[in-house]
């Protein structure tokens, strides 16, 4: 099954993915990337590879394969 992976260096902390994930598999973190944005992590156990995070993300953080 396809799974989402994230390049969080691209993340701008908008949280649209967190809100849109139908399985609540995306966890908002307080950790910041080099740009200073709070990033996310993916709970691979919950991820169903649906691609919604990829579609919502304005910053191309996600790859699903």
């Amino acid at each position: 099954m396809a799974k989402a992976s994230a390049n969080t260096e691209l993340c701008k902390g908008c949280r649209l993915c967190v809100d849109a994930c139908p399985k609540q598999a995306i966890i908002p973190l307080e950790t910041v990337n080099k740009k200073g944005y709070e990033i996310i992590s993916i709970d691979q156990g919950k991820c169903i590879g649906c691609g919604i995070c990829y579609k919502m993300c304005p910053d191309y953080v996600f790859t699903v394969e």
Partner: peptide, 9 residues
């Protein structure tokens, strides 16, 4: 673009 901006999509 700013965080959450639609231009990127």
């Amino acid at each position: 673009w700013c965080g959450g901006c639609g231009h990127g999509v």
